[in-house]
């Protein structure tokens, strides 16, 4: 792998081949599609770069600003996400999804009071999108409030049979170590989109965390079959095979705790 792979030289190499071969105009819509595709493949770094491209074409695209904050959150860079959210909020102070994203950056950083205030503000702005409710659920889980369940249900109601929203909800549940809930969400997501490797990968991770090593192995194998280039699945399989008795006991214990 080239060490310059992440640098951008005007018309970046990875897009050049795709764009020129398919004769697509590389405009805002193109980069938005690419970014969304990268997000749906959990390639958050790539999505972040594409959203930056979108903003170069149209700095008034609030969704792209919000998505960048969300990418940083997914990458675990909560402090940077907060800084970027503040910058975006200077432009769009009443953008509900941006307020919701800021709430998530705050709650993941440990500032629960402010997070709740931003989440309230997002809902007060009459934002009724799945992400706002996912973010609300995220904040409530951080506050250890049982009302979080309602938020995830509401998000799924707003996006019926949407595997992507279910996957995002599962990721939030998994972040707070609620692997059983995450598992249920992932099973639903797989029902709605069986052929996506990412869902199998995530399912495998949850099963592994719960100590279901056999099913986890099977899920990782499915993910690898659907996407033979999936390094994460490959690595997970290798890791799974090298796990010892202690890890198995830890998995049983975790399941008992649920």
């Amino acid at each position: 792998m080239s060490r310059f792979i992440n640098l951008e030289f005007g018309g970046e190499s990875e897009d050049q081949s795709l764009g020129s071969e398919q004769g697509l105009a590389k405009d805002e819509a193109y980069y938005l599609r690419e970014a969304q595709a990268a997000f749906e493949n959990a390639d958050f770094e790539k999505a972040l770069r594409h959203y930056a491209r979108v903003l170069e074409f149209n700095p008034q695209n609030a969704a792209a600003w919000t998505a960048q904050v969300r990418m940083l959150i997914e990458l675990g860079e909560y402090r940077e996400a907060k800084i970027w959210a503040d910058k975006a909020l200077e432009r769009f102070p009443q953008e509900p999804e941006l307020l919701a994203a800021k709430a998530v950056t705050l709650c993941r950083g440990g500032d629960l009071q402010s997070a709740m205030a931003f989440s309230d503000a997002a809902i007060e702005e009459r934002g009724d999108t799945p992400y706002i409710w996912l973010a609300r659920g995220d904040v409530l889980l951080a506050c250890k409030e049982p009302r979080a369940d309602y938020c995830f249900e509401k998000a799924l109601l707003l996006a019926p049979r949407n595997w992507f929203v279910a996957w995002l909800a599962a990721r939030i549940r998994a972040y707070y170590k609620q692997f059983v809930f995450a598992l249920n969400l992932l099973q639903k997501a797989i029902e709605w989109n069986t052929g996506h490797f990412l869902l199998w990968l995530e399912l495998g991770r949850c099963q592994e965390s719960l100590g279901f090593l056999g099913p986890a192995e099977s899920s990782f194998t499915q993910a690898l079959q659907l996407n033979p280039n999936c390094h994460a699945a490959d690595q997970a399989l290798t890791r799974l095979l090298s796990r010892g008795l202690t890890d198995r006991v830890r998995g049983w214990w975790r399941r008992l705790g649920k």
């Binding site: 770094e45 930056a52 903003l55 170069e56 960048q68 402090r79």
Partner: peptide
């Protein structure tokens, strides 16, 4: 990485 785009956010570093 930190591409030169003004719309690319500052990323986490060693001190983050």
């Amino acid at each position: 990485t930190r591409p030169d785009s003004p719309y690319y956010p500052r990323r986490a570093n060693l001190f983050s």
